[in-house]
């Protein structure tokens, strides 16, 4: 049964990627489309659009979607909290502050790397602080969540402070980034984020059984031979790296890390090993589709939506339907 679900999700991902390559703001005829598929090295308008513009973006969506969903899934188990998501432990606030500071005060020019590097740097500063604070409380669940939430508040307020000082254009640029978007040059960033996201997901998968044990409570986990504190330490760092890379690539794309793991849990049950594979596949497919909607829905008016808006609205409604269908209590 599980294998069939994995297969379905995988096929879904392939179809989503195909749709994303096929459709965009500019219509391309089937003939041209196939031609640039069968002759991927031939230059031309269709080639530029499909291989140099859409393809890097689809790859980025696959990686970010998979990373966010897997990280969210692991954190929900790790913190025994259905509201946990990749941004719960203070990553988002730090990343936002990093991006905002660089946008407004330090005009460093690293080309396509400027915002990703500053966001990642900010996220890592914030994560380090959360780690140090939570460490004083022996990495208890409450310690981690409280440290994460409070630091997020502090950093978010600092971002608001910067927004009030920034010029209208800078403000727009930061706000657009905060909503989460896959627009812009993704050619460089997709050469870097796989090194964080793919091994990250693999490690989360390997810790699947430990997560199952921790979901029962620290004490029960201990009797099953799992050191909850140690696991939390390691997985906190791993999920932070994954989420940090996702944020660097796409800003704050909400909801993927929250709803995809829940939806998958409803479908295949609470075991973390299969759950992480299923979440990664479903997260990737979902974000690829959501980004296709974001790119095309208003393109006739010359407007692109931030993908975060689409994931929030579509994802939210989809999730409510799932909740209404699922009668019994959700299990972890």
């Amino acid at each position: 049964m599980r294998k069939i679900i994995f297969l379905i999700l995988f096929v879904l991902l392939i179809i989503s990627a195909f749709i994303a390559l096929r459709f965009g703001s500019v219509g391309i005829e089937w003939r041209e489309f196939w031609h640039s598929f069968t002759h991927p090295s031939e230059q031309g308008t269709a080639h530029s659009i499909i291989w140099l513009t859409r393809f890097p973006r689809v790859l980025a969506a696959v990686l970010v979607g998979a990373g966010l969903a897997a990280a969210g899934c692991a954190l929900q188990g790790l913190l025994r909290n259905p509201l946990a998501e990749p941004y719960t432990l203070g990553i988002s606030g730090g990343a936002a502050l990093g991006a905002a500071v660089v946008t407004v005060f330090m005009p460093i020019h690293l080309g396509a790397w400027t915002t990703p590097v500053s966001a990642f740097f900010g996220a890592m500063v914030s994560v380090t602080l959360v780690y140090l604070i939570a460490g004083r409380r022996r990495f208890s669940v409450t310690g981690l969540i409280l440290a994460g939430v409070i630091l997020s508040f502090i950093f978010s307020s600092a971002v608001l402070l910067i927004l009030t000082l920034a010029s209208p254009l800078e403000t727009n640029s930061i706000l657009f980034w905060l909503i989460g978007s896959l627009s812009g040059d993704k050619v460089s960033i997709i050469k870097a984020i796989p090194f964080f996201i793919i091994p990250g997901i693999a490690i989360l998968y390997l810790f699947g059984r430990d997560l199952d044990a921790i979901a029962l409570g620290d004490e029960k986990a201990f009797h099953l031979g799992v050191e909850a504190i140690r696991v939390r330490q390691i997985l906190f760092v791993v999920t932070s790296m994954v989420a940090g890379a996702c944020i660097a690539a796409a800003g704050m794309v909400g909801f993927v890390g929250l709803i995809i793991p829940h939806a998958m849990r409803m479908m295949i049950g609470p075991g973390h090993k299969p759950l992480i594979i299923a979440s990664s596949l479903a997260g990737a497919a979902f974000l690829v589709l959501a980004d296709t909607v974001a790119r095309t829905v208003l393109s006739r008016h010359g407007q692109e939506l931030p993908v975060g808006v689409v994931t929030g609205i579509i994802g939210g409604m989809f999730f409510i339907i799932l909740l209404l269908k699922q009668r019994e209590k959700m299990s972890f």
Binding site: I49, G302, Q303
Partner: peptide, 17 residues
């Protein structure tokens, strides 16, 4: 129309040559 100030429709721009 190729976008606003912050987001540009790259595909459209390529198509316009």
């Amino acid at each position: 129309v190729i976008g606003d100030l912050l987001t540009q429709d790259i595909e459209r721009i390529i198509q316009l040559k």
